[in-house]
Design a protein around this nucleic acid. Structure first.
Lengths: 206, 206
DNA sequence: GCCCATGTGGCACGTCGTGCCAAAAAGGCG
DNA sequence: CGCCTTTTTGGCACGACGTGCCACATGGGC
């Protein structure tokens, strides 16, 4: 069912990441506005036409970096922590996904901080979280008995996603490091708790 | 301090709305992708160059319609309901802002439903709510004693904005009318309650 | 060797959004 | 009213964006 990715698919994913890194460096240095798609392509060693086969618009080029954490979050929630109440499962997987497992994850977090300063990239940031909310919605629905109110599930997914988003935005404007006090993990745990603890929602989204 | 808008400013606002209506009609009919900025300008009786003086990108043309409710919400919250606890004040102003006061407001709601179907306009919808969250953040901060934790205020604004957004999105996909059962007002009240009632947050954001 | 499938580059094209300048309104003032 | 200043509008040109199309390369199976 969950087939491992083809060699070619992994190649493609790797290229995507390479482009994303090049784009992030350029965006952070000159700003997204002043960077042309041609420059990103050149810095990635591909043609302009190929760039647009990997990303539909130039701002999207940094999406893999911004979305990595959220994707890991949903994966952790969906795969692990079965049997736990939804709220606890969400809190745990969020905390784990906000704990950078390797250097790449730390790097992605650092880029996030820089990229969030660019107003031109705000739309990407928001799209990434909209996607995350949608995926989380599906993952939660898969755990709930059929017939659970869709609105409740939407609210649960939205509350959790919002908590993580606010945590990351707060971390970005603060000077804190990616680990330790003031880290995304710490802020994320706090935001998740403050936005979810006490809601009657979780009794109905089981 | 709060100067009434100049005659010219009101003229400009009126033109913005006229363009927004024309754009909404075209977007709803053919989709945003298949509609050129030139067509919107032509339908509004202005030149292409002037269109771009009112809106920075063609998708933005419908923002006035999508943002009207949120702006009214923050205005109601900031002006009225002083003395109430923040959560109650938010709930009341939200309910009132979701109750269309005139035909224009009903019209804006109807457009919202149509426009939300267009994936190309998702970014506008999200930007509108990001702005709303920011304005709400400022309005809440103005009511809190200085030194209140910024993160708490951000979370409060985010939770409330998210509740309203989910309510409207749910209303849009449902077939319900703008008033009566299943209306934005009803869904909004429910979402606000489910996402805010029980949070310890409100004890600290006073 | 061959073939087929998939990924890549080059080119042309329509649209987007902006800088620039000239024409046209709109608002005081004698 | 005429005159002048300020603001708004339109036309034009231009670079950048994103896509359809086709020709070329790579790479794996027979």
């Amino acid at each position: 069912m969950t087939g491992r990715p083809t060699l070619n698919q992994r190649r493609r994913e790797s290229t995507r990441l390479e482009i994303a890194r090049a784009a992030a460096a350029l965006f952070a240095a000159r700003g997204a506005e002043a960077t042309t798609a041609e420059e990103i392509a050149q810095a990635s060693g591909i043609s302009l036409r190929t760039f647009y086969r990997y990303f539909s618009e130039k701002e999207d080029a940094v999406a893999p970096l911004l979305a990595a954490g959220g994707e890991r979050w949903v994966r952790l929630f969906a795969e692990g922590s079965a049997g736990l109440p939804v709220r606890e499962a969400l809190e745990r997987s969020a905390a784990e996904s906000l704990t950078p497992p390797d250097d790449d994850a730390v790097e992605a977090m650092q880029w996030t901080r820089d990229l969030l300063r660019d107003p031109r990239l705000a739309s990407v940031w928001q799209r990434v979280h909209a996607d995350s909310e949608q995926r989380l919605h599906l993952a939660i629905a898969a755990r709930c008995p059929q017939g659970t109110d869709v609105l409740e599930i939407r609210l649960a997914a939205a509350a959790a996603t919002t908590a993580i988003r606010v945590a990351l935005e707060q971390w970005a404007v603060s000077g804190a490091a990616a680990t330790g006090p003031g880290s995304p993990r710490e802020l994320g745990a706090r935001c998740m708790h403050e936005l979810t603890a006490g809601l009657g929602l979780w009794a109905r989204v089981s």
